[in-house]
Amino acid sequence: MALLGKWIWRLGTDKGGLWKEILVSKYGGWRSLREEGKVGRGSLWWKDLKEVWASEGWGRSFEDGFEWEVGEGRAILFREDNWLSCGALKSVFPRIFSLSVTKGAKVAELGNWFDGVWVRKDRVGEVSPVYSKLWRCKVLPSALVTAWRVMENKIATRVNLERRGVVVENLVCGLCGKVEESSCHLFSVCEFTWRVWCLCFEWLGVSFVIHKDPLVNFQQFRLCSASDVVNDVWGAIWVGVVSGIWRHRNSVTFDRGVVDALEVFALVHVNVWSWIFAKSCCNSFTYPNWVLNPVDCMRLVV
């Protein structure tokens, strides 16, 4: 047992070596020893290592014996490893860990060191160009927040609610009644959603391919030859469609509303036009002009 324990120690502390690279590529390194379950086609030697790890809490003693040298954090898992004095974040905040979409991320991937203080990357540096485009859209804050939640997959779809531990009676989409209601389905590939998008494309006089990922969909929803101002209005239309689909879904789910793609499309007309007038200095076109000639009206927005 002592010899096997020494191999585990070397697996966790040695910084290189062909033998370690092979084990990491095949089994995942020393962290895989703490995973429960069968090894499958693992060697007898690896199975013995797992038995030693699990016997009499040896593995916990091994981890507690580490004193991490963080450095840039390229080898330390941010949530899973015990690199903080309070313990592993996975154990301290299990609820947050269960909702995290960055499990397995390294310390260096999620933040940087500034004068000895670690700061998350989303609090420093430049904002992602995709979100910079979103924040420029001339829309109501409530619609902006809805769009951001959709792009981040934080919207309370039935699949997301179940993932958070909420008991959901039925996961099927309330608008098409055929597929599980995930963010990708509800806002991109649902039959109802596709009808709404087609109505918008016909209104705008364009052909477009919908990407199933809302974040990529928003990023691609622009005119290559148009000015930034015109593309900001295009972004507002995207926000109007997404927020309109979400409101309509809630109406159907909670208020026994009727599924109607034309209703959502009509509200996109009204909402985006009202947002433009509320958020810009433009007053040179009327609502009928907006409905009949949207692209021409976009060029008049200041």
Rank of each mutant, 00 (worst) to 15 (best):
R136I: 04
V189I: 11
K154M: 12
V206R: 03
T193W: 00
E181Q: 12
A143S: 07
C224V: 09
Q220L: 14
L186C: 12
V145R: 11
L161Y: 06
I210Y: 02
L215N: 08
V150D: 06
R222Y: 07
L199V: 09
A147S: 13
D213A: 12
G174L: 07
P214V: 08
A226T: 04
L186Y: 03
V230H: 11
I210D: 00
L199C: 04
R158Y: 07
F201C: 01
E181S: 08
A226L: 00
T157A: 13
I155S: 02
V189E: 06
C137N: 09
G205H: 01
L161C: 09
C190E: 01
R195H: 05
C173E: 03
V159R: 06
R164D: 01
V139C: 01
A226Q: 05
Q219V: 03
W194S: 14
S227N: 03
V168A: 00
F201Q: 05
M151D: 10
Q219D: 11
A143Q: 03
L144T: 07
P141E: 12
H211L: 04
C190N: 12
F192D: 00
R149A: 10
C173N: 07
N170E: 12
D228N: 10
Q220S: 12
F192T: 15
C190G: 07
K212V: 11
L161V: 03
K138N: 05
V196W: 14
L175Q: 10
C224Y: 01
R195N: 09
K212H: 15
W203E: 06
L161G: 04
K212S: 13
R158D: 07
K138E: 02
M151G: 09
L175P: 00
V206N: 09
T193N: 01
T157W: 08
E181F: 01
T193S: 12
K154N: 10
V196M: 07
C224W: 05
V167W: 09
G174I: 03
F218R: 13
N217F: 15
E181Y: 05
W203R: 14
V150W: 13
V216I: 13
A156T: 10
A147P: 03
L175S: 02
V159C: 05
N170G: 04
V179I: 05
G165Q: 09
H211Q: 09
C184G: 14
G174K: 11
L223W: 15
L215V: 06
C173I: 03
V189K: 13
F218N: 15
G174S: 08
L171N: 05
L144N: 04
T157I: 14
N153Y: 15
A156E: 09
R222I: 04
F192W: 08
H185T: 11
E180N: 15
L140E: 05
N153F: 15
C198S: 13
S182N: 08
L215Q: 10
R222Q: 11
F208R: 11
C173W: 00
W203M: 08
V229F: 05
K138R: 14
E191C: 02
T157K: 02
C198T: 13
V216G: 00
V172L: 01
V206T: 12
S183Q: 09
V179T: 15
